[in-house]
Simulated scan of single mutants.
Amino acid sequence: GIGPMKGQFPATLSHGLRTPLPSILGFLELFERRTLGPLNDVQTQAISVVARNARTLSRILNNLLYLQEVRSGDLRRTEVSLHDVLRGLLAEFQHAAGDAGITLSASLQPAAVYHGDPVGIEQAMRALIDNAIKFTPRGGKVGVILVDEPSRAIVRVQDTGVGIPPESQEKIFLPFYQVDDTLARPYPGAGLGLAIVKHVVEAHGGQVSVRSAPGRGSTFTVVLPRSP
């Protein structure tokens, strides 16, 4: 009947969508490394374009499938060091920020261990930092701040980017929402990152908010309450 199918469909869909991508990306990497033979300049450029778009597709797909998991309420709580998560992500994003001509800085208090879902927390923090870098022009700055308080942990991601119009500031946390076509066009993605942030944070009993203005950057604030 329909009942069993509803439970099986996401898992079947997830497997079906995930399976082809590793082989596609694997063969593209072999081409990029010239393992399968030499390439001329036109072929090299074509492979580079295909590989870049395949990786974008992979990120979108992973975000879509992860959002499905979060919505199902499947959290696995354990001890998480927010300090270590953010420090690892900052190291991971330094190269991308440098390539984009953006200064990435941090002020991280050595927060006490937080009881939460480590995968979800990392995905949410990654989405916030990625979003800030993506919408900050060359020469701009992105800062990550972690404040440790007895009853809660606060994470702020600040940028000097393009900013968000007031009428869009509630909608940006909806899946697939883009501020507008003109703004979104240079930035590949499906508008899932901030939806993941909202669902993960709220699943932990927390809140996410944004303070922004067009041309004046944005500050995203995540408040995660500690378990009583």
Rank of each mutant, 00 (worst) to 15 (best):
L194T: 03
F220M: 11
L192R: 00
G217S: 05
G205Q: 09
T221C: 05
L174H: 01
S209N: 11
G193W: 00
S218Y: 03
L194D: 00
S168Y: 10
F220R: 10
Q207M: 07
G163S: 09
R185P: 12
V162S: 11
G217V: 00
T182D: 01
P186G: 14
K198F: 11
Q178G: 15
G193I: 08
R216E: 02
D180Q: 05
V222I: 08
V162Q: 08
Y177G: 13
S212F: 03
E170D: 05
G191N: 05
G205M: 08
G217L: 03
E202Q: 11
V162P: 03
V200C: 07
P188V: 14
S212G: 04
S209C: 06
K198H: 09
V208H: 01
G205P: 02
D181E: 02
H204T: 13
P186V: 11
V179G: 00
T221M: 04
G217A: 08
G215R: 12
Q169W: 13
S212T: 06
T221S: 12
L192N: 05
F173N: 01
Q169S: 04
Q207W: 09
K171F: 10
E202A: 15
V197M: 10
Q207T: 14
F176K: 01
I172L: 11
P214F: 14
I164E: 01
I196K: 08
G217E: 00
P186N: 07
Q207S: 07
Q169C: 10
G206L: 11
V208D: 06
A195N: 10
E167P: 08
V200G: 13
T219Y: 06
A190T: 01
G189A: 13
G205A: 00
D180G: 13
P165D: 09
D181Y: 12
F220D: 04
F176C: 08
V210W: 07
V208L: 06
T182Y: 13
A190N: 03
H199C: 14
G191C: 02
S209R: 04
A203E: 15
L224F: 10
S212P: 07
V201R: 12
D180M: 11
V208G: 08
Q178K: 14
A190F: 04
A213E: 07
I196H: 04
V200N: 06
H204I: 04
D180S: 04
Y177E: 12
K198T: 13
Y177S: 06
G191M: 10
A190E: 00
Y177C: 12
Y177V: 14
D180K: 09
H199P: 05
L183M: 13
V223K: 01
G206S: 02
A184C: 01
T219S: 12
I172D: 11
I172G: 02
G163M: 03
V222A: 11
V222H: 05
F173R: 02
I164R: 07
F176I: 02
F173P: 10
K171W: 09
G163V: 06
I164C: 05
G163I: 05
L174F: 10
H199N: 15
G215H: 01
P165H: 14
V200F: 14
P166R: 15
A184V: 00
A203D: 15
R211F: 05
G205E: 06
R185C: 03
P214H: 14
Q169G: 07
F176G: 11
G163A: 13
V201I: 10
V197N: 00
T219N: 12
